[in-house]
Design a protein around this nucleic acid. Structure first.
Lengths: 134, 134
DNA sequence: CTTGACTCTGTACCATGGTACGGACTCTAT
DNA sequence: ATAGAGTCCGTACCATGGTACAGAGTCAAG
């Protein structure tokens, strides 16, 4: 028993499938230190459910706008005791997310107006260039 | 008079400053076809307020998540009559923006919960890995 | 016991969106 | 008239996040 229960039961291909990524991507994440070195059997990587969780976390954190570097740090923090740093990363990302969400909402509103101004009813060029102007 | 009023009154440096980008970035956008060929005086690029508008549009469209390729197309559509295509680009980006906004809001909610669970009150590792789980 | 699917390694390559030269020229201000 | 700031061009380089080999070894099914 190398790591509690759940010994390596997944090949790299299965893990990749479980995380909806490619095999090369798993290797890439390993190189980057996002997935730890798996146990080996005859040279073949073997993974467990912990790795599936990590892999899924990576994708979700990416969707949240974290970079791989930040995700790496988050994964390290998960194992550690540095709550302050974890909170810091979380709150600064929350701030960034709030800003970004506001940006995207503004952009969406502009585009909605553009799509309307550029509707079926009229003709000629659409006022695209000026569409983001307030 | 090469182009209506507003002859080239800005050097590349001034244009870049007006758009809050670097000179190299302006040259880059020109190479990519996002800014049209400026008039030249003794080999030096000269720009007008139209170019400032284009440059600002580029940055705003980027913030809205358009790629430079898409922005190029939008700029071309602005001058043209193809309203249908312009609407198409706008509405598909609105859809993408809605999805993205929803993603980011979910992520923010997860992080807010994480920051809370990982608050001053308690100790030990934070539940980072599982923070995105529903 | 062979065939095909899978995996191994390292390295090279890709797209996106810039950023940074080097060496030559020009413009502006003193 | 001359220094220093700005500009020219082409090309090379950067970071991020992958993606794609090639050539060799291994495993699982018939």
């Amino acid at each position: 028993m190398v790591q509690s229960q759940d010994p390596g039961t997944l090949t790299i291909g299965k893990l990749a499938a479980a995380g909806a990524v490619g095999v090369e991507t798993v290797r890439f994440y390993q190189r980057k230190g996002l997935l730890h070195q798996p146990t080996r059997e005859s040279g073949f990587r073997h993974y467990g459910s912990e790795d599936v969780r990590r892999l899924r976390f990576i994708r979700q954190a990416q969707a949240a706008g974290f970079t791989l570097e930040e995700i790496k740090e988050l994964l390290e923090l998960d194992a550690g005791e540095d709550r302050a740093r974890a909170r810091e990363l979380a709150t600064s990302r929350i701030q960034a997310l709030n800003d970004k969400i506001a940006d995207l909402q503004r952009a969406r509103n502009s585009l909605t107006k553009l799509a309307h101004d550029c509707g079926e009813g009229s003709s000629g060029p659409c006022p695209i260039l000026t569409s983001f102007e307030v």
